[in-house]
Write a protein that binds this DNA or RNA. Structure first.
Lengths: 336, 336
DNA sequence: TTGTATGCGTTATCAA
DNA sequence: TTGATAACGCATACAA
């Protein structure tokens, strides 16, 4: 039942420091001694107590993951999976702090409950403001960001270049003759305080390129109490002249729309080109043209940078900007 | 920087025991003293060290979550969210152990790396075998299961009644005149060793009711290297006589199929009724008839049972079986 | 290369 | 209701 380090030491006929070393720094102990210790440990079913090790070393082996949205979204769950694939083997647990609304968020940054209890903080994809970063900095632990608005105050970051991605996609539409496009995006109620950073960047990126090319953009802003699919469909129907392409902020928005369009006899892409963002698994299966990003990979990347910073090193690209890739599939076509 | 319990005690002019009590058992300390301590803690920016508390109490405040699939699936990420919504506020971290293949799985149960380092184990939705449960039992911590094949060895469980759900759905099809249905489901390569328990139950449930009603079932088994959508579409086309209804093991399978059917001019539900399982968000948006289950809720439920067991109590329903609900939407209809 | 001794920051026991 | 003190299980400086 108990089987502490003492018992193993006794069983193996060595001191507890040797047992400790056998697990923590195996190369500092004679192979012979090592196997003796391992045998004893095996026999007694011994496992190192992470709590004790943590207390002694001053580390907590815990990282805080800050998100503004649920872990169950496509982006967040994949980011998490990527982080965990690196962090778990390294002995770290991930503690999720979800800040759904302004209140949660204020509460978190006011009390900083993780203080002195995490070895690092990961900020995942929300428009954290400078004062909040400042508060995190007071914790004196590495801060790494994924899709955050500014690298200021961050030890490392990895982000998708949403803006550039939009440029590519809009140019793609332009080159196929589209001059009049509709853009569907979600807006939150609380003054966009909680609007994810990516959303802003995507909107700006789109507008920039469209203006530059003199394309007309009809915006379809979806309030979060609305039925997105219907809102988009209705807007499409009322626009006059009708747009030739529909750009959706995310695949999640685009997917039900293209299904409904098909059902109601509107041919995609013949009548309307549709383009999404994210490249969720269903997008490929359905042939949706979209911008591909890989949150699992971003999570892995961020985790590696984090580990690197924690061990005092400087990760090669401290701040990395990834390009989303345009996946040209079947929902976009030349006009006419 | 340091700000340990000693410092707070000094600042507040009390002993460390009082400080400890103020945080751990506030009601055992005079309100007056309490506020003195709180003020000092606030001033010094003190937070309790979870590692030290864990060491002393013998608890780890960590639970292991065993899954056979990635956290990024719809079911798993929602279960996790539900678990975390209860466990996180209670001070527990969740450590995910993903056992993707037979090798991982064997490794895990052979070494039991979590031994003595978690306060409980949650087995999420895979067909764990008795010997494995037996090994977990040796850890002497509560074991709670979500969608597991047998309650033997588990302190508490919560499961969906997949079998019953299939009965309901098949009867629904029967009552609408369907006598010839196709069932699409995924099979893994390694002798179904890793087939999730739900998958087996769904298949059996379907066959039972179909046989009972003398309905014909054409099985479409999808190997995991195959393109599921195409496999299903091809099978549908080659079956003679054609089935009047397609039942998919999961919405994930059904969604791209109904889109493709629409694209190729096959009317759903007029030509073919389609039914899914899960009720992912997109199912509602698209109008897919499906069986609704709520993994977030199951996670919450399991977490509450776990906490209850850990505190020595006996949760009211120790083992709970939930009914999936048939969501009758637009992809099923009367035949002819 | 290994052993001895000390302390990490907390909680629990007991006494006051 | 509060305080003194002894662990909890391990890692590390230092000595051997």
């Amino acid at each position: 039942m108990k089987a502490s380090i003492q018992a193993v030491a006794a069983e193996a006929g060595v001191s507890i420091s040797t047992v400790s070393r056998t697990f923590a720094k195996p190369n500092l102990v004679l192979p012979e001694t090592r196997s003796k210790v391992m045998a004893a440990a095996e026999k007694l079913d011994y496992r190192i107590s992470r709590s004790a090790a943590a207390l002694k070393t001053g580390q907590s082996f815990r990282v805080a993951l800050l998100m503004s949205d649920s872990i169950s979204t496509w982006f967040n769950s994949n980011t998490y999976a990527g982080l965990d694939s690196v962090l778990h083997p390294a002995g770290y647990d991930i503690s999720i702090f979800e800040m759904a609304d302004a209140h949660d968020r204020h509460e978190f940054f006011a009390t900083l409950p993780v203080r002195r209890n995490v070895d690092a903080v990961i900020v995942n994809s929300f428009n954290i403001v400078p004062e909040e970063v400042e508060k995190l900095s007071n914790m004196k632990v590495p801060i790494v960001g994924i899709n955050i608005p500014s690298i200021n105050g961050f030890n490392a970051t990895v982000s998708i270049d949403d803006r550039q991605a939009m440029h590519v996609a809009v140019k793609h539409l332009f080159s196929m003759g589209h001059r009049r496009i509709a853009y569907a995006y979600e807006t939150s109620n609380d003054n966009n305080q909680n609007m994810v950073f990516s959303a802003e960047a995507r909107l700006h990126g789109l507008m920039e390129t469209a203006e530059e090319r003199k394309m007309t953009v009809e915006r379809i802003a979806i309030r979060n109490y609305e039925d997105a699919t219907n809102t988009i469909l209705n807007s499409l129907l009322t626009m006059d002249p009708a747009p030739t392409a529909l750009y959706c902020e995310s695949d999640e928005l685009a997917l039900p729309v293209i299904y409904k369009l098909c059902q109601y006899g509107h041919a995609v892409p013949q009548e309307l080109s549709v383009i999404g963002f994210d490249d969720v698994p269903l997008a490929a299966k359905i042939g949706l043209t979209t911008l591909h990003q890989d949150p699992f990979n971003m999570g892995e990347n961020a985790a590696r940078k984090m580990l690197s910073v924690m061990s005092g090193k400087t990760p090669k690209p401290l701040h990395e900007t990834l390009q989303a890739q345009l996946m040209m599939r079947e929902t976009t076509a030349f006009i006419d």
